[in-house]
Computed example of a mutant assay.
Amino acid sequence: MLLDGRNAIIYGGGGSIGGAIARAYAAQGARVFLAGRTRATLAAVAGPIGAEIAEVDALDADAVDAHADAVAATAGGIDISVNLIADHDVQGTAMVDMPLDDYLSPVVTSVRSKFLTARAAARHMMPRGSGVILTFGGSGDPTAARRYRLGGLLTGFEAIEAMRRQLAAELGPHGIRVVTLRTGGVPEAIPVAFAGRAAIEADLTARTLLGRTATLEDVGHVAVFAASDWARTITGAALNMTCGAVVD
């Protein structure tokens, strides 16, 4: 199995994307640690795959560090760290009409949480000379921002891409890889009860070259590849699984 013997922390592991990655990691032999603020959603994902859970606020530096220390002590180290917490974005309002705090919310949330979780993992990975840190999102499509009025979400994505490049440069000499998973949108992750779900799915699909979007299963498979030795030559890069919605 590709991740046999690896220890993986997934922040936001109770969500749809986090759950998909958790299931894929467990299926490939990883020991999975799910972290998040809501125990019930974490437990729902953890139960079928035997993952371990902890209530952790990924915006709290002390909590993140303490949890990473506990995982490393319990499991013998941290091999994979994935941050998938909600970005706290506010959408649907034009930028010229948006309050500053609403615009900055996803930027501050994303940068703070991903800095804290990457730093905590890297501190344990560096002495071992290996590790993988995964982010999620990638550069956004500005035309989508025009259609959906995404507020500061894309600014937050771009900030994390800058962080990913810098982390890859600083951590590469220690054998640590940093990679972004980029999907272009996963309709399965949109709540079924959301009124605009069908229209968004149709739009996302229409913008692809393959006539389909990535599924949750696809995300899990690519996340396994990215964290495995099969991807050991890849760092400082975004893995494009947009089905051609974004052409590199």
Rank of each mutant, 00 (worst) to 15 (best):
Met1Ile: 00
Gly5Ser: 14
Gly5Val: 06
Arg6Thr: 14
Arg6Glu: 10
Asn7Ser: 15
Asn7Glu: 02
Tyr11Cys: 02
Gly13Ser: 12
Gly14Val: 01
Ser16Tyr: 07
Ala20Asp: 07
Ala24Lys: 04
Tyr25Lys: 06
Gln28Tyr: 09
Gly29Ala: 12
Gly29Asp: 08
Gly36Gln: 06
Thr41Ser: 08
Leu42Ala: 03
Val45Glu: 09
Pro48Trp: 14
Ile49Ser: 09
Ala51Trp: 11
Ile53Arg: 10
Val56Asn: 08
Leu59Ile: 13
Ala61Arg: 12
Ala61Asp: 07
Ala63Gln: 15
Ala63Val: 07
Val64Arg: 01
Ala66Asn: 09
Ala66His: 11
Ala68Val: 00
Asp69Met: 11
Ala70Asn: 12
Ala70Glu: 09
Val71Asp: 03
Ser81Met: 10
Val82Gly: 06
Asn83Trp: 04
Asn83Asp: 14
Ala86Met: 09
Asp89Cys: 15
Asp89Ala: 15
Val90Arg: 10
Gln91Asn: 10
Gly92Phe: 06
Gly92Glu: 10
Met95Tyr: 13
Asp97Pro: 10
Leu100Arg: 11
Leu100Pro: 01
Tyr103Arg: 04
Ser105Met: 14
Pro106Glu: 12
Pro106Leu: 04
Thr109Ala: 13
Val111Leu: 12
Arg112Lys: 13
Ser113Cys: 06
Ser113Asn: 09
Lys114His: 11
Lys114Asp: 10
Phe115Asp: 02
Leu116Ala: 08
Ala121Ser: 14
Ala121Ile: 00
Met125His: 01
Met126Cys: 06
Ser130Met: 10
Gly131Gln: 09
Gly131Phe: 12
Val132Asn: 02
Val132Thr: 12
Ile133Asn: 15
Gly138Ile: 00
Gly140His: 01
Pro142Glu: 00
Thr143Phe: 02
Arg149Val: 06
Gly152Cys: 07
Gly152Val: 01
Gly152Tyr: 03
Leu154Trp: 02
Thr155Phe: 11
Glu158His: 12
Ala159Lys: 13
Glu161Gly: 05
Leu171Gln: 11
Gly172Trp: 05
Gly172Ala: 11
Ile176Ala: 13
Arg177His: 08
Val179Pro: 04
Val179Leu: 03
Gly184Cys: 09
Val186Asn: 03
Glu188Trp: 11
Ala189Cys: 09
Pro191Thr: 07
Phe194Cys: 04
Ala195Glu: 14
Gly196Thr: 01
Ala199Ile: 03
Ile200Lys: 00
Glu201His: 03
Ala202Met: 06
Ala202Trp: 00
Ala206Leu: 01
Arg207Ser: 02
Leu209Arg: 07
Ala214Cys: 05
Thr215Tyr: 04
Val219Asp: 01
Ser228Lys: 15
Ser228His: 15
Trp230Asn: 12
Trp230Met: 14
Thr233Pro: 07
Ile234Gly: 00
Gly236Asp: 05
Ala237Lys: 12
Ala238Gly: 13
Met241Thr: 03
Thr242Tyr: 02
Gly244Thr: 08
Gly244Ser: 08
Val247His: 04
Asp248Gln: 05
